[in-house]
């Protein structure tokens, strides 16, 4: 039977036009700028610059080496983002499990508590970590009072990872929790009745069922941490230049074409990663 009522085309029209003009066309502009020079003639220079530009960097041993500037930056972004995502997953998975098994009232309170820091402006959150981790900061103050010696964290890769984990941790816990809370408890009981131990229930029932939540958690942490440009400025003392910083500084210097080229490369890499992860999740779900 044909459905009556308002037709679909009319209400969809404004959004379709908006999405075309402000979602799709801008992405074409990224590609357009990435492959043109300042007078908008076609060039591959911006892309090749990303892969071939070199600079001299003093290593920890004091020896200066020539390195591929942007490949190094990109590799570092990838490394720190992956480390942060793994830490978020290891911390968040058990927490999501615990919350999902708690009484309804406790779940409500816990999820609200976890969401609160998310709505706190992320610049302020990151800055607060700077005052904690500074050499004369709060952490060293507490360690000093306890006579535990001093630590130097600010300006290291660890500080950047701490900032990323802190800022994006809720994005890991929430989707995993959401999937686990909706899981049918009868399945777990059935697995136990059929002789599964606690660990095999976790490995063979809970984990496969929670995989969609894990995948969206990973995507939601990996993407902002790979592209951040504030955390590294504040907690890495500007020493740990990430791809986001590189894009931002080219934008500030008004080198829009090179900024676009880096954004374009980042976008392509992320698309490939995501297609791969989605494939993996689908295959696991199909088994």
């Amino acid at each position: 039977m044909k459905r009556r009522g308002l037709s679909g085309g009319l209400p969809l029209a404004p959004y379709s036009l908006w999405a075309l003009l402000f979602i799709l066309v801008p992405l074409l502009f990224v590609a357009y700028y990435a492959f043109t020079d300042n007078s908008f003639h076609f060039t591959l220079e911006n892309i090749t610059r990303f892969f071939t530009a070199t600079s001299n960097v003093a290593g920890d041993d004091g020896v200066t080496r020539e390195v591929y500037t942007y490949l190094l930056i990109f590799g570092r972004s990838l490394k720190l983002a992956v480390i942060s995502t793994v830490i978020c997953l290891l911390m968040g998975y058990p927490a999501a499990y615990i919350i999902a098994r708690a009484p309804a009232r406790t779940q409500r309170v816990m999820i609200t508590l976890i969401m609160i820091p998310m709505w706190m402006n992320f610049l302020i959150r990151t800055y607060a970590w700077m005052t904690i981790l500074q050499d004369t900061g709060i952490l060293n103050g507490i360690l000093g009072l306890l006579h535990l010696g001093q630590v130097h964290i600010i300006g290291t890769e660890s500080a950047v990872v701490i900032g990323m984990v802190y800022d994006y941790f809720p994005y890991m816990i929430l989707p995993i929790y959401s999937v686990m809370a909706k899981m049918d408890v009868k399945l777990l009981e059935a697995a136990r009745d059929l002789g599964c131990g606690s660990f095999s229930v976790l490995r063979r029932v809970i984990f496969p069922l929670s995989l969609p939540g894990v995948v969206s958690g990973i995507i939601m942490v990996l993407i902002p941490s790979i592209s951040t440009f504030y955390i590294s400025q504040k907690l890495g003392n500007g020493k740990f230049y990430l791809i986001g910083d590189a894009i931002e500084s080219q934008y500030s210097a008004n080198n829009l074409h090179f900024a676009a080229a880096m954004a374009f490369i980042l976008m392509v890499v992320l698309l490939v990663c995501m297609a791969f992860m989605q494939r993996f999740a689908d295959r696991r779900a199909a088994v």
Partner: peptide, 25 residues
């Protein structure tokens, strides 16, 4: 429509920001 709607959510903010800025400029 689903794919287009997902783009701004999945794209990093920096790319959404840069892409709109390039078009405006």
């Amino acid at each position: 429509m689903d794919t287009v709607t997902n783009i701004p959510m999945i794209n990093p903010d920096i790319i959404t920001g840069i892409s709109l800025m390039l078009m405006f400029v």
